[in-house]
Design a protein around this nucleic acid. Structure first.
Length: 424
RNA sequence: GGAGUAGUACUCAAGUUGGCUGAAGAGGUGCCCCUGCUAAGGGCAUAGGUCGGGUUAAACCGGCGCGAGGGUUCAAAUCCCUCCUACUCCGCCA
């Protein structure tokens, strides 16, 4: 959430930068006007409440001494009825301001590339050479079906389309990847491993920036408690510390979490219908950090390195792009995507996303920190990154390490976890 | 699912015939004294958070605030309602 005070002070500049996302954010002018109105009404209300409090106190004293109280009681009565009128008005205007702010995305960082969609993303670097094949490469769903390690038909029977059953070495490869990634981030990169609930409540979705705007993307439970299936570990993860004031001594706080993510993929009908690139349910190892504002971009770059380390260890060719303003997620000020080379696709596909939300999520979830004892609390910056999307990593392994005879080599780093040289 | 108890500040905890308690007390924490050092002892300090006003910045003023949200009342931590959480017992269960 954006800070109303900042909007008030830099209205034009903020609108200009937000407009880079595509869209018209000039309604923030109205929000500023509503806020002015709100503050002047608030002052009236507070004046009246002060009268009410003071006179009420006096009534107590008068009563104890047996003096008449009908006159001061009339004063309070009058103040109260005025308060009620003002409060009705202020509630209405506060709702309007709140709605506008909750539906306004984060301001893109000043040096990110302009542009509308992924075409305008900026290439940061490419790492690793795509392998050349002297046979015809197969897409991962053909490889996996032939090896009988992924089963789409039975998954559809059990649930619906966009689900998959992993079998045999396929299931083992998924599990190996999860363990490998968690171990790497814990042992080499200093993250604390956490295992989170798969179900989250409405407020948590608001805190992470999913709601209210993207309710349709989530799976809602039929339950009077207003619960949803976790769409990504970022949501429960960032909310680990909601309504908390952290100590600067404990920061940065770094978590790595394996979760299963659930998404409606409502706007993606017809896209990536074959294979497991886009599923309603998928596994992901996530990286999360709570950092002080002045270190957040440095920490964000480190996190990018931690994600890249997974691909490097597995020997998968990839590239890093910096998202342009138009391609940026709702809550994020800056995002790097890591795209892995997929031979069947003859191109790079997203496998990880590493973002800095600055204080946007911290405001929504009310996560603060104190620099030292007695210091005024400030909002933290929150970072999140994939480390990596597990299903898509499995896809990349199947496709990049496929052999002409239909077998798939197990990457060196996974051999201890798979205890297997080759999937055949 | 049934029955019950509780939720006050960093922690523990007083406060329920509504007003003089924004909140006793203890611990903790910080600073100082004492002691050769440590321990023990003594002194002082320490009510946060948030919203609004105010200030160059503070100071300062006010609203809210005793799990959350409503209500009763001139006035609520104290009375009423709903919800959340924790704990205990029973039932069920991986």
């Amino acid at each position: 959430m954006l800070e109303i005070r900042k909007i008030r002070e830099n209205t034009e500049e903020l609108i200009e930068r937000l407009n880079l996302r595509g869209g018209d954010f000039s309604y923030l002018h109205d929000v500023v006007k509503w806020d002015e109105k709100r503050r002047s009404m608030l002052q009236e209300i507070e004046k009246l409440k002060r009268i009410r409090n003071e006179v009420s106190k006096k009534i107590g004293v008068l009563k104890r001494t047996g003096k008449p109280v009908s006159e001061p009681m009339a004063t309070v009565e009058k103040a109260k009825s005025q308060i009620a009128v003002f409060e009705e008005d202020i509630r209405r205007i506060e709702t309007r301001i709140q709605d506008a702010l909750l539906n306004t995305p984060n301001v893109p960082h000043s040096n990110i590339p302009p542009g509308q969609d992924e075409e305008d993303n900026r290439l940061v670097r490419s790492v690793g050479e795509p392998r050349t094949f002297d046979f015809e490469v197969l897409p991962h769903w053909d490889i996996a079906t032939a090896l009988d390690i992924l089963d789409f038909e039975r998954a559809a029977k059990i649930a619906s389309s966009r689900f998959v059953v992993y079998k045999g070495d396929g299931a083992r490869l998924e599990r190996a990847l999860i363990n490998f990634m968690l171990d790497l981030h814990r042992d080499k990169h200093g993250y604390k491993e956490i295992l989170l609930p798969y179900i989250v409540n409405y407020d948590v979705m608001v805190g992470a920036g999913q709601f209210p705007k993207f309710v349709d993307d989530a799976f809602k439970l039929v339950d009077e408690r207003n619960l949803y299936l976790n769409p990504t570990a970022e949501v429960p993860g960032i909310n680990m510390h909601r309504e908390e004031i952290l100590s600067a001594d404990d920061m940065p706080i770094s978590y790595t979490a394996f979760t299963t993510a659930f998404r409606q993929e409502a706007g993606s009908a017809g896209r990536d219908t074959r294979g497991i690139l886009r599923q309603h349910q998928f596994n992901k190892v996530e990286l999360l950090k709570f950092v002080t504002p002045e270190t957040s971009y440095e920490e964000n770059d480190k996190m990018l390195g931690h994600s890249e380390a997974v691909l490097k260890a597995l020997g998968l060719p990839y590239r890093v792009v910096e998202l342009c303003a138009g391609d940026l997620g709702f809550a994020m000020a800056k995002t790097y995507d890591i795209e892995v080379w997929l031979p069947s696709y003859e191109g790079y596909r997203e496998i990880a996303s590493i973002s800095n939300a600055e204080d946007y999520q911290a405001r929504r979830a009310n996560i603060k920190f104190r620099r030292k004892r007695g210091a005024k609390p400030e909002f933290v910056h929150t970072l999140n990154g994939s480390g990596l999307a597990v299903g898509r990593t499995l896809v990349a392994i199947l496709e990049n390490f496929q052999n002409e005879d239909g077998t798939v080599d197990v990457p060196e780093a996974l051999k201890p976890y798979m205890q297997l040289e080759k999937i055949k």
